[in-house]
């Protein structure tokens, strides 16, 4: 299992100018396996944090290790890190550039210096993720719908076979159906391929439904790190840093105040519905 380790990482923007900002403060993290969610308010440093994982941003101090190797130790190791920790940035559909979908997905694998045969294999495997019909591979990515474009951009990173798939707000700007399908697709991909997935989001609902582990960031620090119940049970602290718990958790808590106790560990709508049905003796079903 691949492992990503950050120790004592600090990052300061615009050092020495009046605009100096301490974006990350003493981050110590170990991530490997499963689906990890990173949440935080705007400006909490979560986007800077994920750009540390693949060496897009160099820490002012501290080390970033991928599989035990410091990515900043040698010059060419940073490039390796780019392929090992595949990063999908926010609104990735705006980075499509090639004349066909196929060529665009092949950009990453070709940069890795793979043989054309291997590139072809990977592109086809990754395209299966984007659920495009085979004939669409020869079309221009600019002719696709918004949701399809995003899938192609995702496939472009998946085709590099990264050990970590890091996604910055993968569902931003999509409708509920699009959200479910893209996040569900990512979850399935992670499970089938054994890739560790890291998702940045500020949707508590998505975090609760898809993540095994949640890391909460606030003003450049990691303030919570644990599974759903560990994190969402600290309701007041979350509110304090401008975050929230899933809506359904609030409903469950309101219900228990009024005498219908379905428990405090309710984080997804499906679970709440099941629990309620159970309590109502299946009448509703």
């Amino acid at each position: 299992m691949a492992e990503l380790e950050l120790s004592g990482v600090n990052y300061i923007y615009n050092k020495g100018t009046p605009y100096e900002t301490h974006a990350l403060k003493d981050i110590n993290l170990k991530i490997g396996g499963g689906i990890t969610g990173i949440i935080g308010h705007t400006g909490s440093g979560k986007s800077t944090l994920v750009q540390m994982f693949n060496g897009l941003v160099k820490p002012t101090s501290g080390t970033v290790k991928l599989d035990g190797e410091d990515i900043w130790e040698k010059k060419d190791r940073v490039r390796e890190a780019r392929f090992k920790a595949g990063l999908v940035m926010q609104y990735p559909e705006y980075q499509l550039f090639a004349s066909t979908v196929y060529e665009d997905i092949a950009f990453g694998p070709r940069n890795m210096g793979l043989s054309e045969e291997e590139v072809d294999k990977r592109v086809r495997a990754a395209a299966a993720f984007s659920k495009l019909p085979p004939e669409a591979m020869a079309r221009s990515p600019f002719d696709l719908s918004g949701g399809q474009k995003r899938r192609v951009a995702l496939a472009g990173v998946i085709a590099m076979n990264p050990a970590f798939l890091v996604l910055d707000e993968p569902a931003a700007g999509l409708d509920p159906g699009g959200r479910r399908s893209i996040l569900g697709g990512i979850k399935e991909f992670g499970k089938n391929s054994g890739t560790s997935v890291i998702i940045v989001s500020h949707s508590m609902e998505d975090m609760a439904s898809y993540c095994d582990r949640i890391i909460v960031m606030a003003s450049g620090r990691v303030i919570m790190d644990g599974n759903c119940s560990e994190v969402f049970s600290r309701y007041n602290e979350l509110i304090g840093v401008g975050l929230d718990v899933p809506q359904v958790t609030r409903i469950a808590s309101a219900l228990s105040h009024r005498g219908l106790d379905i428990g405090r560990d309710v984080y997804t709508v499906g679970y709440a519905a099941g629990k309620l049905c159970e309590m109502l003796d299946g009448d509703v079903k």
Binding site: L56, R82, M89, Q95, F107
Partner: peptide, 13 residues
């Protein structure tokens, strides 16, 4: 800068 970072993340040099 954003686009450059995105392409760098795909190994562009």
């Amino acid at each position: 800068e954003k686009i450059m970072n995105a392409q760098k993340a795909r190994g562009a040099d």
